[in-house]
């Protein structure tokens, strides 16, 4: 990753982290808040591919881990894994895929990310992550985060896409890997 991309990614993740901690933590549907950092990890996997996506997913998870009571590294592990998977999926799909398809895949990625988080948490770290609210968190949390998936994709497009044009119009193709 170039220095510019690292700077852009740092800025985006910092803003999203503050929003997650101070805004979205207080705006809950049925007691569930959106997982914005997970959404960012999914979007980064889509736009940056498996390798850079996994790195950004890891950083995204690590940042939120610093403010959670769950073991440090659990979100980082889950988010890196789901970013990698989404990165692989994105490579198999045409670049000009409809945005609705991209959103649906991202939504599935978010839900899968939550499942991975709980499964790994139960297996290696924190008991009681799986509880009777798990289904509600999956459905409400997934859909709620899904509401923000387009802005998240927009941010990650801004971070990862190269501008191959001489004038200053936005490049629409994915980053070259």
């Amino acid at each position: 990753m170039s220095i510019v991309r690292v700077a852009k990614a740092t800025l985006v993740l910092f803003i999203l982290l503050v929003l997650q901690l101070e805004l979205f933590a207080n705006i809950r549907f049925f007691g569930v808040m959106p997982e914005i950092m997970l959404g960012a990890a999914v979007a980064s996997g889509w736009h940056a591919g498996p390798r850079d996506g996994a790195v950004l997913g890891f950083v995204s998870g690590f940042l939120i881990d610093l403010y959670l009571a769950t073991p440090l590294g659990l979100s980082a592990l889950s988010y890196a894994l789901i970013s990698y998977v989404i990165g692989i999926v994105s490579e198999l799909i045409a670049e000009d895929v409809e945005k609705i398809v991209r959103s649906v895949i991202s939504l599935v990625g978010i839900v899968l990310g939550l499942v991975i988080f709980v499964v790994f948490g139960e297996l290696i770290a924190e008991p009681n992550l799986y509880n009777k609210n798990f289904g509600k968190i999956l459905v409400v949390g997934g859909l709620y985060t899904g509401l923000f998936i387009r802005p998240l994709h927009f941010f990650m497009e801004w971070v990862f896409h190269q501008n191959n044009y001489q004038n200053n119009q936005f490049a629409m193709s994915r980053v070259r890997r």
Partner: peptide, 30 residues
């Protein structure tokens, strides 16, 4: 459909990240 050739670099990166994560979890638990 042509499937892009994935470099082993991405798998290696993922393995490193997972290793770091598990190490962090382990250290934090202790």
């Amino acid at each position: 459909m042509a499937v892009p050739q994935r470099s082993s670099g991405s798998r290696f990166t993922l393995a490193i990240l997972l290793l770091i994560s598990v190490t962090l979890i382990s250290l934090d638990a202790r």
